[in-house]
Design a protein around this nucleic acid. Sequence first.
DNA 1: TAGGCCATCTGGTCCT
DNA 2: AGGACCAGATGGCCTA
Length: 200
Amino acid sequence: MEEMFFDFDQDPTADFAFWGQMDPNFQFQPQLDNILLDCHSLTGQLSPWSSFACQSVFPDAQLTLTDLDSQPMQLEGAELDSSLAADEAHEFNNRLQCGLVPNHPYKVQRHAANIRERKRMLSINSAFEELRSYVPTFPYEKRLSKIDTLRLAIAYIALLREILLSGCDPKSYVDECMKNGYKNQTNAIWNTSGTDHLVW
DNA sequence: TAGGCCATCTGGTCCT
DNA sequence: AGGACCAGATGGCCTA
């Protein structure tokens, strides 16, 4: 996967890209709570993936949380376990009509568990999408994998923490990092899969 | 073609 | 007892 390397000196838009729409008169300390509580204000335009928050980007992922949550109960043609929720029942019926649902009681239970598991994974994935929208990436950066999302989120939090502790203006802090080479105190890694060194 | 990433299924374990 | 959570297995898709 492409590593997160960017030459800020070569691209005059880099600062803007990294910090989002930062006010030139930005005062860090009063704004810090906003940074931490509403990262969208800083990163909303950073990543092409931001707009995908809470929705799958995979064309074949046709089942969404909304789909699962909004379907009415339909019992026709199936003797459903009373423990099945409405959404599960709906998908159960759909699959029954497609001949995908087994008749054996154990298999019926297993099938319901599969549906619950799928729904659970969808909720996890939507959380990943939301987290991706907060992690700063560059426009050409391809979609972050789950593991990269977690690693970059850790690194980003570490950076914000260091800026906070430094008491410096965040932009000059980053500029300083550009000049002297970034040395963080937590060994947070600013790169994506496939590389094992710190890059800035 | 190999490797990375992902969704899905599955059985086991934990929790309410 | 049933649902939530977890990890392993498997197969599909994509890219270098």
